[in-house]
Computed example of a mutant assay.
Amino acid sequence: MNNFPQTLTIAGSDSGGGAGMQADIKTIQERHVFATNVVVAITAQNTIGVQDSFPLPLELVTKQFESLAADFKIRACKTGMLADAEHVAVVAQNLRHFDFGPLTLDPVMIAKGGASLLADSAIDTLRSELLPLATVLTPNLPEAEVLTGQKIQTTADFKIAATQLQKMGAKNIIIKGGHLDNSDQACDYVLYADGSDDWLNTPRIATVRTHGTGDTFSACLTAELAKQVPLKKAIQISKAFIQVAIANPIAVGHGHGPTNHWAYQEVEHD
């Protein structure tokens, strides 16, 4: 019992199925890992945008953590949409209480359509409560700028920002450069806990079907860590996974469509 790799996603529900915990669960399943979930918030959402959202009661969030801890052997976990400062705090409290393995912290702030998924008042709580718990922090460019309070435009800026984030407590930093549109490459910067660093570069793909890319990347990383894949290899697999998912799109929705979560299994081999 409980020998199969198991993960936890702590996030919001995307009714459109392309991002949030739906994207997490689809991705984790594709990597042959079992996914559990703690629902923090429910959204009315599609590829066009977020029409409404509702954070769940704090007591119910904690009850979900307790329920999972009583039955499953979770080997890695991740966060996504956490809504507001109160929910960030209760998630951090439960992650300190329960050992769910390495934490991948995806600091989700803005949906593809522009809707805010994290209250401004929650940023400080995220910095102080969750960053010190993170094994891996995976902000995109705008999120890294918010967390550090500085613009990131050059390769030197990436390194400075990652160092700042590491000083806040996160052990390993991946700043995703997909929003930096002055290059034909999508360049991600990785700063490891031991001070070594790396760049992950893939060809930029011109498409609007990028809904849930950050969730998908961090979910793949979480699944690999649950299988005890070394971090550097896990990051490389996750970068390849999301690249293939974007390059082989699914034609659904009228806005920022989803990535293809099963594409990697069809065109790549471990």
Results as ranks from 00 to 15, higher is better:
4 F>S: 15
9 T>A: 05
11 A>Q: 08
13 S>Q: 05
17 G>Y: 05
20 G>N: 08
25 I>D: 03
26 K>C: 01
29 Q>C: 14
30 E>A: 13
33 V>F: 02
35 A>H: 07
39 V>E: 01
39 V>T: 11
41 A>N: 14
43 T>M: 02
45 Q>Y: 09
46 N>W: 01
51 Q>W: 14
52 D>Y: 07
52 D>N: 13
56 L>F: 02
56 L>H: 03
61 V>P: 13
64 Q>I: 02
64 Q>M: 02
67 S>V: 03
67 S>D: 07
70 A>W: 04
71 D>R: 13
73 K>V: 07
76 A>R: 04
82 L>W: 08
85 A>W: 02
87 H>V: 11
88 V>E: 05
88 V>T: 03
89 A>L: 08
92 A>R: 14
93 Q>V: 05
94 N>C: 13
94 N>K: 10
101 G>H: 06
103 L>V: 02
104 T>M: 10
107 P>A: 00
107 P>T: 01
107 P>S: 03
107 P>I: 00
112 K>Y: 08
122 A>G: 12
123 I>S: 05
125 T>R: 15
131 L>D: 10
134 A>Q: 08
137 L>I: 05
138 T>N: 02
140 N>Q: 09
140 N>S: 04
142 P>T: 12
144 A>P: 10
146 V>H: 06
150 Q>M: 14
152 I>G: 14
155 T>M: 11
155 T>Q: 15
155 T>L: 08
156 A>F: 02
162 A>Y: 10
162 A>E: 04
163 T>P: 08
163 T>I: 09
163 T>H: 15
164 Q>F: 08
164 Q>E: 11
165 L>W: 08
169 G>I: 04
169 G>R: 13
169 G>P: 15
169 G>T: 10
170 A>W: 09
171 K>T: 12
175 I>D: 11
179 H>L: 01
183 S>P: 12
183 S>A: 14
184 D>K: 10
188 D>V: 10
190 V>D: 05
197 D>A: 11
199 W>N: 12
202 T>M: 01
206 A>G: 12
208 V>I: 05
209 R>F: 11
210 T>M: 00
216 T>P: 03
223 A>T: 06
226 A>M: 03
227 K>W: 01
231 L>V: 12
235 I>C: 09
237 I>K: 12
238 S>Q: 00
247 A>I: 00
248 N>Y: 03
249 P>S: 06
265 Q>D: 11
